[in-house]
Design a protein around this nucleic acid. Structure first.
Length: 483
RNA sequence: GGCGCGGUCGCCAAGUGGCAAGGCCGAGGUCUGCAAAACCUCUAUCGGCGGUUCGAUUCCGCCCCGCGCCUCCA
């Protein structure tokens, strides 16, 4: 399979450099509150990468971190009056719940910053020893960007531009004077403890001048350098994240890791473009800021949200709207029917399709079916939109397909790679949820219908509609659906 | 200002130097008392202006519009 690489700005083959496993790292969430759907767009596409690379036979080994110490988590725990760990645990748990609802495969390793302090300190000491870091006037350790000649190679920024940059896109002054450092572009590796950090502090790298450890906490970028090296090696295959992380986060990771280790860091870089909500950047004041919980509360199905998130190519902007989630729900209901129809044609039980009884087709097997273009699209820079189009096209042609069972197994592979799940079309309310009164009305209508008393049947139907229920007739009876 | 992305049917969104995928919504039809479902059918010359070409939505140039990043936001 091929994937766009930010470093070289070109689509390159994706491969495991050790010939065994595709080792990749994705920047995970900072657990200070609920993740929003924008976060989940990135995580969903990394999930598609994880799944597709597996189908491609690349045997992925996936590491995604949890950032559990930074300004926001410290502030949040202080505000809640709970220890940092309790605070981050709570949000980590919520994050995992959302991931499960969105059918995201858990990473093979999910390391946390606070349990890898020693590894981070070691990097800072290496950088100090090699002259890539210095202790600033405030006692914090900073990275000396000028010492790293490749700085800017990922984001394609020139260091001199960063020097002259005095305002950001919002027209606000960059907080260049907030820290006591030599150069605007220099960034904190290790932050000296401050009062507002409370008990959040560790023994850090030794100050070369005094030989005593600097009490404080790790800087933002350090954890990813430390944990990727620990679990994937100093050089690994791929690093992924949201587009905003390209600079400065990933640029700084490269600077730290390559300076400290003297070997290339990640070979291939993937960045997922941000989504817009209702045509604008998500913000709480605009009322277009959605978490998964918000959407579930509005009655949407998480499976529809997932479909929508992966329905657009990851390098294109996605405009997330409530109307489009509705559309996605319709599509997923239709998908359910299509799956049922194909199961029936193949003589395979639906439960077997969902379970292990019907194995997924291998990439080679898929290639022999009408789903081949769908998988090809995924292999070509994770073109999920094209893959979905090809999937529907194939589904439309299934009537004429010769080997329905092979087609079904191929469909299973496509759905697995995309990580999408059909929504049962028949989602009538369980009998227990139907009020007696409604049941009685529905029964009465059924009797009227059998008696061919159409006027009465229609009146009863209207009454049920007024109460928020719809009758769906079958040949031998009826179902009730809540509106 | 620097770097980058994009403008394709009402909405979302693929794609190609030579008949413009797919999804949602909508319309018409078949079928059912009605309704729903199902099935069938239908809806675009691709931001603007030039250029290259036998031929451009696809390549080049300019312009217009939208968006992202430019120090802690996925």
């Amino acid at each position: 399979m091929r994937l766009y690489d930010t470093l070289t700005r070109s689509v390159l083959p994706l491969f495991a450099s050790d010939g065994k496993r595709l080792r990749f790292y994705a920047c995970g969430p900072t657990v200070y509150g609920p993740a929003h759907i924008g976060n989940f767009r990135t995580f969903s596409l990394v999930d598609v990468l994880r799944r597709t690379s597996e189908v491609a036979g690349l045997n992925p080994f996936y590491v995604r971190n949890i950032t559990d110490v930074d300004d926001k988590t410290i502030k949040g725990s202080a505000k809640d009056g709970v220890p940092l760990t309790a605070f981050t645990e709570k949000w980590t748990k919520k994050f995992h719940e959302d991931c499960a609802r969105l059918n995201l495969i858990a990473p093979d390793v999910e390391p946390r910053a606070t349990t890898h302090i020693a590894e981070q300190v070691a990097i800072v000491e290496k950088l100090l020893a090699k002259g890539y870091a210095y202790v600033g006037g405030d006692g914090s350790v900073y990275y000396k960007v000028a010492a790293f000649k490749d700085y800017g190679k990922l984001s394609h920024f020139h260091p001199e531009e960063l020097v002259t940059q005095e305002t950001n896109s919002a027209g606000k002054a960059n907080a260049a004077d907030e820290y006591d450092r030599d150069h605007v572009a220099d960034f904190a590796l290790w932050k000296a403890a401050k009062d507002e950090d409370g008990q959040v502090r560790w023994e850090g790298p030794k100050d070369p001048a005094s030989g005593t450890p600097i009490i404080g906490r790790p800087g933002w970028h350090l954890e990813c350098s430390a944990m990727s090296a620990k679990y994937l090696g100093e050089s690994f295959d791929l690093h992924a994240g949201g587009e905003d992380l390209c600079f400065p986060h990933h640029e700084n990771e490269i600077a730290q890791s390559e300076a400290a280790n003297g070997v290339p860091f990640a070979r291939h870089w993937m960045h997922c473009v941000h989504l817009l909500a209702e045509g604008k950047k998500m913000s709480k004041s605009l009322g277009n800021f959605y978490t998964l919980a918000d959407l579930l509360e509005k009655g949407f199905d998480a499976r529809a949200v997932k479909y929508l998130l992966v329905s657009v190519h990851y390098r294109a902007q996605l405009n997330f709207t409530l109307d489009s989630v509705k559309g996605a729900e319709s599509a997923m209901r239709r998908l359910d029917k299509a799956v049922n129809a194909l199961c029936a044609k193949a003589g395979v039980d639906r439960a077997a399709f969902e379970g292990d009884a019907l194995p997924r087709a291998s990439a080679e097997e898929v290639a022999k079916t009408s789903f081949a273009p769908a998988l090809d699209s995924l292999f070509d820079d994770l073109n999920t939109a094209a893959a979905l189009g090809a999937m529907w096209e194939a589904l439309k042609n299934e009537k004429s397909a010769a080997d329905a069972k092979a087609e079904l197994a191929a469909l299973k592979t496509i759905l697995y790679a995309l990580g999408i799940q059909p929504i049962p079309a028949k989602d009538e309310a369980p009998a227990s949820d139907i009020p007696e009164e409604v049941k009685a009305l529905a029964e009465a209508r059924w009797e009227a219908k059998k008696a061919k008393d159409w006027a009465k049947a229609d009146t009863l139907r209207k009454e049920l509609t007024a109460k928020g229920w719809t009758i769906l007739d079958r040949k031998d009876g009826f179902d009730l659906k809540k509106n």
